[in-house]
Write a protein that binds this DNA or RNA. Structure first.
Lengths: 238, 238
DNA sequence: AATATTTACTTGTAAATACAAGTTTGTTTG
DNA sequence: CAAACAAACTTGTATTTACAAGTAAATATT
């Protein structure tokens, strides 16, 4: 009999360890308890524990070394909008602020969209919003988001000021990010983008078009992000 | 007793299936043989087969569906220099050419390097080269590569014209790419870069600084890539 | 004929067991 | 004291067994 819900044990252990690593219970470079120790601690068998550790290694939370143990690595992303990380986490998330330019509204999708949409997505309409992200009061990202209006009641009413969109989707709708794809370009910004990012004429802008997959079948998050990479550069793992 | 070398069975099966998928034995959308069938075919047990399939799913070659089977996906990258993929694979790799600007030479590392180097790397010196990548005769990437001169005999003598650097490292030195990290910026190109990419003044350029990890302990590949994203955009999964 | 239901698949989860192989830490030996 | 060895760890690989859960097709029912 499973104690509690029908969440697999290996998944549970994965979440526990992931949380511990994220919260700093284990520092970078630390050794995780050995597999056998984890077995004893959580009452599982080694194959189950190993499944959890394999997933953690995959997601970049640990590095395994035969004969040595599992070494903790710093978490890879978790920076709000951009899963491309680094600059922000290097500075600590303290100075990161979000200003909403266009509040979430429900409206039809643009005719020409950056990604191909399913029939269901087109029919559902999209939740649209524009946000500006500032680091130490300096605008860094301008983010235009599109979400298909599927199984997300009352989402336009929610606050997006302080919490990241991902956190809200996770806490209120149990939506988890699974991965995604992106197109990256260097562009000359439009006057509008230039003014939001407070750029001088001629300064280039990094443009990301992303399609983010979730655990909800058919639910994707889309965003078009303009970055001022003059002072900071976007960082990512692959 | 192991038949042949000391390569694990699950790794062997992984390589076999990966090759089959890459070579088109299975088309996109096809179902792989079921796990039990693979057991019979290759004389392994299900956990071993599952380990192979888990790795394939991880690397984006298949998508698993409970009750259904393992569905083949198109390979994710494998595009020569850039693991950021898409544009090239969409066009087929036929039109991709490489022109060597600076042949591989052994020299000391730059004093100020884009990533922190280990003591061993600094002492070993670096293999330096510059290459231009063209798509349909139009220059797209300008790639400056740095490799620590560790366990790579005769590498400066090898041909890089037609084969990708990764392929050479793989075939001659058994070096496998494990992952990496990158910084991305939009910049105004220098006159030199602008002339190589045949750009007009004012056109922005995408700049990637990458550190690529390998299976060889302590061996990293570094590259600084300048991309003309005017016509094509760099594509990547995460 | 259309709809349930059963059946035979598929992958997912989990245990118990065994040995191989790399790493560290002692202990013994010279 | 220093080097060589041995023991006690660690993770890696692999088999065997069992049942759960999702999917699809064949079958029985209405």
């Amino acid at each position: 009999m499973n104690s509690g819900a029908s969440i697999p044990q290996h998944r549970k252990l994965y979440e526990i360890l992931r949380k511990h690593i994220s919260e700093g219970v284990y520092a970078e470079g630390d050794l995780l308890p050995s597999e056998n120790e984890l077995c004893r601690l959580y009452g599982m068998t080694r194959p189950t524990v190993r499944q959890s550790l394999a997933a953690l290694a995959n997601d970049g939370y640990i590095r395994k070394h035969q004969g040595k143990g599992s070494i903790v690595q710093l978490p890879p992303m978790d920076i709000g909008i951009l899963s491309v990380s680094g600059t922000t986490s290097a500075l600590g998330n303290r100075n990161l602020k979000t200003r909403i330019i266009v509040k979430p509204v429900l409206k039809p999708w643009p005719e020409e969209f950056m990604f191909n949409l399913t029939k269901l997505e087109r029919e559902s309409g999209c939740i649209y919003m524009e946000r500006l992200r500032l680091l130490d009061e300096a605008p860094i990202f301008y983010d235009i988001s599109y979400i298909a209006n599927i199984n997300l009641p009352r989402i336009t009413a929610r606050q997006f000021e302080n919490k990241s969109l991902f956190v809200i989707l996770r806490e209120h709708y149990q939506v988890e990010i699974k991965g995604g794809e992106q197109r990256i370009r260097a562009i000359s910004p439009s006057a509008r983008i230039r003014s939001f990012l407070m750029l001088e004429a001629g300064q280039p802008v990094l443009h990301l078009e992303r399609r983010i997959m979730t655990n909800m079948e058919g639910l994707f998050l889309y965003s078009s992000i303009f970055c001022n990479t003059g002072k900071y550069s976007v960082f990512g793992r692959f």
